[in-house]
Write a protein that binds this DNA or RNA. Sequence first.
DNA 1: CGGCGCAAGTGACAGCCGTCATGCGGGGTT
DNA 2: AACCCCGCATGACGGCTGTCACTTGCGCCG
Lengths: 200, 200
Amino acid sequence: MIRVLLAEDQAMVRGALSALLNLESDIEVLGSAADGETAWRELQRLKPDVLVTDIEMPGLTGLELAQRIQRHELPMKVIIVTTFARPGFLRRALDAGVSGYLLKDAPAENLAEALRTVHRGGRAIDPQLALVAWTEADPLNDRERQVLRLAGEGLSAGDIATRLNLSHGTVRNYLSEAIGKLGAGNRIEAFRLARQKGWL
Amino acid sequence: MIRVLLAEDQAMVRGALSALLNLESDIEVLGSAADGETAWRELQRLKPDVLVTDIEMPGLTGLELAQRIQRHELPMKVIIVTTFARPGFLRRALDAGVSGYLLKDAPAENLAEALRTVHRGGRAIDPQLALVAWTEADPLNDRERQVLRLAGEGLSAGDIATRLNLSHGTVRNYLSEAIGKLGAGNRIEAFRLARQKGWL
DNA sequence: CGGCGCAAGTGACAGCCGTCATGCGGGGTT
DNA sequence: AACCCCGCATGACGGCTGTCACTTGCGCCG
């Protein structure tokens, strides 16, 4: 019997995935959580064999949850199930020691299959995404990332400078760097590109 | 027996929702489609009582699908199930004659419940969202919408002008108008606001 | 100590952006 | 005809943006 905890913020999807997994005779859904912090508590209480988690959740993301599990050396496996085919996300997930990374685009049967593979000690990583993740590295440094994130929210260089305690000109230098590295024509395009790759 | 067709692009969610609905003794999932065009064909072939559809799908969106059903006066009901709590989407959905509009944030049991309500001839609209939709109207006109959409992709005023066969200055006028109407400080903020409300 | 590298800052320049007042022509109203 | 509204255009202004060359201060390492 594979004992599973489910973390996913959208209640309807959470319920549906739970129903799906409960159809499998060798899988038992112990419980589910709607956000990262709840998942963390349930994790310690229920001690599942495998955690199946989304990435985008309020509070603590799935990636941060995986990192925390790694840091505390908890014995359970982690499978990420997400909408986002972003190389940067996969990379961070692998760094956090997850055993599986599936896209919600993949057929539903894959999930149970991945659970079994991972429970046996194997890995279940989306193959196309794995390819891309090895060839495309994030070119941005921390400052560029911060600045780009704020620029993407519509802040001006001056606003960003205030937030980060930098000078107006320095912010523009970082933005210019980021735009150049990403091959974009302006901050908006740069932001979109970086977000799409999962580098923010 | 309520006969249902499911349209949802993410295979895993599609499979999970299907599993969920099949647990209900009075509901039968006839089939499912991964995009709008497929759904449209299956709709005519299977003649379900109710179509349950996502909004964001490749090709034809759920909203466009609902409009098409309305135009052809097909006898089935439509329930929209989406991630997006955007007043503009709900408004367009109601204009397209849908009977239900649920958020994926809502508990899973709501879906079956909504199916029964709608099948009986009732409506199932997310209550909070319904409130907002009645009080917030889209202030943008067609040109402003077009211009803002392109601006959000990172195009400059000149680029947008070329695409829309307008002058450089006119595009900036429309952008300025849109920024003013939305109470934003620049095009980026304006774009984010409008998208969040479902006005793009 | 000297030198290197790195994060942050400066200043200047051209071009783009956001705003506003104003103009023009076509379509509809009275 | 006189009128007004509408979509589009123009031109000018100040501020913001993107780029680049160059400086400053600081920690590190030989």
